[in-house]
């Protein structure tokens, strides 16, 4: 069985388990807490392994390999963050809303830097290549959509958080960091998504498509999380977790498809 097929099956099983436990509350509060902490650890670990497989497929240390290493680094830091979060909540019995920002948040935040660098490297590398970038009017439309999204997020989330007198300076920084970073991450992800749509069914586009979908999934979950967490309404078993888990697994799939793509090109043997 191909590794990609296997991971699609694993993805289906993990998401199914996730939804069943979250919808039914099977086993009670303690089980739900355990499931909600263990699933992101498993998903981010799988994604990290798949990204190692992806960048090991490149023989030469060019910017493509470095971009994939950057994405791996970001996801691996998220894995550490998920691990620390789980240990604190399940292992030490800490109330994560009370200790926000926890040590895990620092790892998530630092993880954004290599993720953004990796995506930017891919986009800049592509732009320099002279390959078609698509229609200018699509970029205009994307820019307007982006500005509209930014305005909505600023109005409903950023400004209320800044003006909230009950939130401390450090908490405000972290509450703002996630949505703002996501806004920045959405830009290269959306552009990659558009560029890959130009490739139609070309084999080359699959890893980028899945990567872009993974990051968009993260952005969606992070934005809702920031709002819910700030309102003290985020807890174990929240359905937005599914978007994070799916995001990790889609990024993992992107890594495996990248390796498959590189292995399938072998003109030397022709």
């Amino acid at each position: 069985m191909k590794k990609t097929t296997l991971l699609w099956i694993i993805t289906g099983i993990l998401i199914f388990i996730n939804i069943i436990f979250y919808l039914t509350g099977l086993g009670g509060e303690k089980v739900l807490l355990f499931v909600s902490d263990i699933l992101p650890i498993i998903c981010s670990f799988i994604a990290s392994i798949c990204l190692v497989i992806a960048f090991n497929g490149f023989k030469e240390y060019d910017y493509t390999k470095i971009a994939w290493i950057m994405i791996f680094t970001g996801i691996f830091l998220s894995f550490i963050a998920e691990l620390l979060y789980g240990l604190q909540e399940v292992g030490l019995g800490m109330n994560m809303n009370e200790v926000f920002p926890s040590i895990a948040d620092y790892f998530w935040c630092i993880g954004y830097i290599p993720l953004f660098i990796g995506l930017a490297m891919m986009f800049i590398g592509y732009k320099k290549s002279g390959f078609p970038l698509g229609k200018a009017r699509v970029y205009v439309l994307l820019s307007f959509s982006y500005l509209a999204l930014f305005a909505i997020i600023a109005y409903f989330l950023l400004i209320p958080i800044i003006n909230d007198p009950e939130t401390s300076g450090l908490q405000t920084f972290f509450y703002l960091f996630y949505p703002i970073s996501d806004i920045f991450l959405v830009v290269p992800a959306a552009i990659l998504m558009y560029i890959t749509s130009l490739f139609g069914k070309g084999a080359i586009s699959k890893p980028w498509k899945l990567l872009a979908l993974g990051f968009l999934s993260f952005a969606f979950a992070d934005l809702i999380y920031s709002y819910l967490s700030w309102q003290d309404k985020y807890g174990s078993g929240n359905m937005i977790d599914v978007a994070w888990h799916l995001g990790y697994l889609l990024i993992g799939l992107a890594g495996l498809y990248q390796r498959e793509l590189v292995e399938n090109i072998n003109y030397n043997e022709l």
Binding site: G57, T64, Y126, I265
Partner: peptide, 12 residues
């Protein structure tokens, strides 16, 4: 080749 590098690396 320059265009493809972004997707498949320099070797391929």
């Amino acid at each position: 080749k320059k265009g493809l590098m972004a997707f498949i690396g320099s070797e391929k």
